[in-house]
Write a protein that binds this DNA or RNA. Sequence first.
DNA 1: GACGAATTGGACAATTGTGTCCAAAATATT
DNA 2: AATATTTTGGACACAATTGTCCAATTCGTC
Lengths: 230, 230
Amino acid sequence: MKTSSVPLSSTAEKAIDAAIGATIDPWPPATSKRQAILNAAADVFAEQGFAGASIDAIAVRAGVSRQTVYNQVGDKDNLFKIVVGEITERSSAGFFKVLDTFPVAPTDLEEELAVFSAQLLRKAVCDPNGRWLRKLVETEGARFPALFETWKEYGPGKKYPAVAARLAQLALGGYLEVDDPALAARQYMALLATDLRIDQQFGRVTPEAEIDRMAADATRTFLRAFASRK
Amino acid sequence: MKTSSVPLSSTAEKAIDAAIGATIDPWPPATSKRQAILNAAADVFAEQGFAGASIDAIAVRAGVSRQTVYNQVGDKDNLFKIVVGEITERSSAGFFKVLDTFPVAPTDLEEELAVFSAQLLRKAVCDPNGRWLRKLVETEGARFPALFETWKEYGPGKKYPAVAARLAQLALGGYLEVDDPALAARQYMALLATDLRIDQQFGRVTPEAEIDRMAADATRTFLRAFASRK
DNA sequence: GACGAATTGGACAATTGTGTCCAAAATATT
DNA sequence: AATATTTTGGACACAATTGTCCAATTCGTC
């Protein structure tokens, strides 16, 4: 029923925080209200959809008066745009941070790819940012075409090619036999995400250990199909 | 923007039609209004979500007065339940109808499995019934717990085991090397659905020929991982 | 053509939500 | 401590929606 909240913070505000220097309280009071609003809005939009989310509900959950919501973000459309924009940024950043640890020159391919896969699962598929983004885009994409375009560009549009590039690198290194890196990337991601998606559809909270198992299963099957037969 | 409509018909009404015998018009006037309402409701719920769907919009799209909607189905909650119930039934029926054509004793495994896979893609993943059901359950599952349970039971809860059973059969027949049929079933479905899901997320209408290609790609990779090394 | 049932459209009250205005209070800044 | 800024909460107009009621009309049936 109640979903855990995702902390949001705009790059602008992070820049300000950095400029001010180390603050005891990570969020200065002036922006903490805004943060509370954006966090609450993310929750309520995800739970109720755009039409079902009322400004009142958002204000209450943020522990803020309704007027403050309007002061901070303008109207409902704008609030929605801001929330999705920030989640998009976070989700994308998290993904590429993990992708940087991809084992491009492994000694034990299966072992290292499984470890990487588990991380990717945790940070990209399991991560509330990405889940809510997918859900919101699916639900409200038609209502906000511009947002839909942004998501496409930041989401699948950049992620799949990036994964494909790593797989191509492994192929060049003689680790894999891959004709079509783009296809292999989609299949790898599909194998990786399937069990977690099923759990999520069922509303089941996946135990940590299971994530490692899922990554290992996906990696094993992927390598059975694509590993170089030495 | 506009989604194509899915014809709905309850089993009860089909039974009645059958009892009456062959009618020229497949839908007697008394039920045709009801059908129009359910079809329209399916569209509008899918497009706007539960909260965003207004009875007026549904009535207009059904070409029916608002009062008739209330006469036929009672209130909005009930309308929603009826629609989801019927879509669940259709979606499940379509899936198992295709599953009956699974090649349990193939002469050319790759060829026959690819053909079957293409059919499954067309009828189960591509099919509007299943898509809207997934979307509605994801969006409104929290609001209608009973519905969520029904979907779980009819949907993944029965489909995956059914696929797993066929794969186990192939393994027994010496066609496949499968340790864990349930896992293999999930992975097979994941490989099969990934490209179509991506297209759907991007709002792209997948050309018929591409579906065959997707099925072939998925089948090839699946068999590279699981086919018996003769 | 006459009867009965379903449909229509319009009006209605009640509710809910949006977005604005404003004066009082709380909070930061100097 | 004085001042500027933000926040608050309440009131408000306006629009959309739900669900009901009912008389007039249309429609299928006999």
